[in-house]
Design a protein around this nucleic acid. Structure first.
Lengths: 180, 180
DNA sequence: CATTACGTTCAGTAATGACTGAACGTAATG
DNA sequence: CATTACGTTCAGTCATTACTGAACGTAATG
């Protein structure tokens, strides 16, 4: 499996090298990959995440294995500064993680074991923050405003059910993940 | 310092007092309400949604009933232009909706029946968009890249399960909503 | 010790977008 | 018809931020 990843890395690297050629048309794999990575960038941007972070993540979906810092900068055509900041963001969310290779000065990153579980955990985090806002609001609003308090309670109920649903989803995914 | 906050709160509070013929609030409730509305604005901003949109939504959580366009602008201390654009955004998402009052030239908005269901539908919409990106990518990637295709499949599987989970959540919420 | 190869940080730039005031179109009033 | 009271749109301003290049600190190499 490591052989496989390395193979892919090599082909992708040589393809990126030729990417600056204007007239050479790759064999079809590269534009598919490139297109996917770019779309991941755009999706990230649509979600308020820096585009480069999305592209880096897309890159790791394609090449999961450990990739060096410098290689990221080169193949994604971005500055080392951007790689530094965005890779750190991604690893702080738990999507990718640093790995050290003995006898190698470079930083390596690889796809985390279960990035999507982290995504859901991020959702739940925001939902719980909304919950605290709601109970705080409910505590500072007089009982006379019954309609308001009812709406706040409905909203709170929504988040409560949603969090429970996501907890269940988390369990389901953890289950089906161990069989892959 | 708290000067800024107090200033905003006080001016907004007095504005709300002048409109007290329609929406009366008990003494001491105003800062709680105001604080909640502002926090909704900040939460929205953190989610990539314009702050004013969040505040408008918060305002409707507090005062669910029909509120005139002009009243929104006045009490939230924002320009009519902002109210126009943000209220339209909110109504396009399905959080609030326009209502017309016979014999009244003004536009009125009110909280939609079930704004949170719409929120989940929004999530699912984005997930489905990711799904199409994934199948598209999978179709344009050669079979030799087995590891890549496996990761894409895992990702697709995640979204599939997540969408199903949210469909179930939607049903559950629709259930518990009819009893409120 | 000097040098090289790293990743990080920082100042600067360009772009994005939220927000506003004013101009505009429109439809109900007088 | 003229006027007024609406909501919308548009140009402009301001703030935010993604991104870069260069300077920097650091640790492994020679």
């Amino acid at each position: 499996m490591k052989i496989d990843d390395n193979d892919i890395l090599n082909t992708a690297a040589s393809a990126a090298d030729h990417a600056s050629d204007t007239h050479w048309q790759p064999d079809g794999a590269v534009d598919g990959v490139e297109r996917f990575i770019e779309q991941m960038g755009l999706s990230a941007q649509a979600d308020g995440v820096p585009r480069i972070a999305g592209r880096i993540f897309g890159y790791f979906i394609v090449h999961g294995g450990p990739v060096s810092f410098a290689q990221l900068a080169k193949e994604l055509q971005v500055s080392r500064a951007s790689v530094s900041t965005n890779a750190r963001v991604l690893s702080s969310i738990g999507f990718i993680e640093r790995v050290s290779r003995p006898g190698d000065r470079q930083d390596y990153y690889q796809l985390a074991e279960s990035p999507f579980l982290r995504m859901i955990e991020g959702y739940m985090e925001r939902m719980r923050r909304m919950q605290t806002i709601l109970v705080q609001a409910n505590g500072s609003i007089p009982e006379e405003m019954v309609a308001t308090r009812r709406r706040l309670a409905q909203m709170s109920h929504f988040y409560e059910v949603a969090v429970r649903s996501n907890e269940q989803l988390l369990r389901d995914l953890g289950q089906s993940e161990s069989s892959m």
